[in-house]
């Protein structure tokens, strides 16, 4: 479903963030991407929908002919509609209401003036209601996004990504600004929703424990290179040391 070939990114300051990533993700697979800060996790998922332009390499999406890196602007927008994204600090537009934030996920499908006057098709509105109900925030619909708590905001962020009706979710550190309880709830919600919709997801995550518990496949990234790719159960102390460096990992691997 998603295939990257020798994907590289060099920033203008000369920093090599990605040193050739080859990866293939089948339909409906939830992948956790782990690695230390600065390993290139965020850069990697942003090169997939070209929020960050890759320097070289290819990204095939949906079929072997559809290379995202070679698309023009309007085709790129069409692809972006099919890729949902969830962000680290929620990235809700704080001064818009919950409903507007959720509906903004449909922007790629409606014209400018309709979106300007907030006239979305009834079908989209119904879907928004359904999603808000699913995440348990139906009663918050008219609240401004900055009135919500962290966990609630991330739920709205999830709804915004899902209303795009995507084939792939890119998730950037969804739990970095949440407490442990909310972190688990959010991870569980994302994984459940992926299963319900047979959705593939790439989840960047710091927390090895959460990654092991929720993902089907783990990819370890270090300094822009893949150093591990396999089952969560295969994460051993030596592999964690390889990804993160020397530390006592015995407690983490224990489960």
């Amino acid at each position: 479903m998603l295939k990257t070939i020798n994907l590289k990114k060099v920033y203008p300051n000369g920093e090599e963030a990605l040193k050739g990533i080859n990866l293939e993700i089948p339909n409906g697979q939830v992948v956790a991407l782990i690695g230390p800060s600065g390993a290139g996790k965020s850069t990697f998922i942003r090169t997939i929908n070209r929020l960050v332009e890759p320097t070289s390499g290819k990204v095939y999406f949906a079929n072997e002919k559809n290379d995202i890196t070679s698309l023009n602007k309007s085709k790129l927008r069409k692809i972006r509609r099919q890729i949902g994204m969830i962000f680290q600090e929620f990235a809700l537009v704080e001064r818009l209401s919950v409903m507007e934030n959720v509906l903004s996920g449909r922007l790629g499908y409606v014209g400018f003036w309709n979106s300007f006057f907030r006239k979305f098709p009834q079908k989209d509105i119904e879907e928004a209601f359904r999603l808000l109900q699913r995440i348990g925030l139906e009663h918050m619909l008219d609240k401004r996004a900055d009135e919500l708590s962290g966990g609630q905001r991330q739920r709205v962020g999830i709804a915004r990504a899902l209303i795009q009706n995507p084939m792939l979710l890119l998730v950037d550190e969804p739990t970095a600004s949440l407490d442990p309880k909310n972190s688990r709830q959010i991870m569980r919600l994302i994984c459940e929703l992926c299963k319900e919709r047979d959705l593939a997801a790439i989840i960047n995550i710091h927390d090895v424990y959460l990654a092991q518990n929720f993902a089907e496949r783990i990819i370890g990234l270090k300094a822009g290179k893949i150093v591990y790719d396999g089952k969560p159960s295969g994460l051993s102390e030596t592999i964690l040391t390889k990804i993160y460096g020397e530390e006592d990992w015995s407690k983490t691997v224990a489960n």
Binding site: L51, V93, E94
Partner: peptide, 24 residues
């Protein structure tokens, strides 16, 4: 990141300004 989120939904430039920039 708020502006980036709007861009990632596949919005066009005007929608991006209207949703991602203007409210801020």
């Amino acid at each position: 990141s708020q502006a980036e989120a709007i861009k990632s939904t596949g919005s066009n430039w005007f929608q991006w300004v209207n949703y991602g920039v203007q409210p801020q």
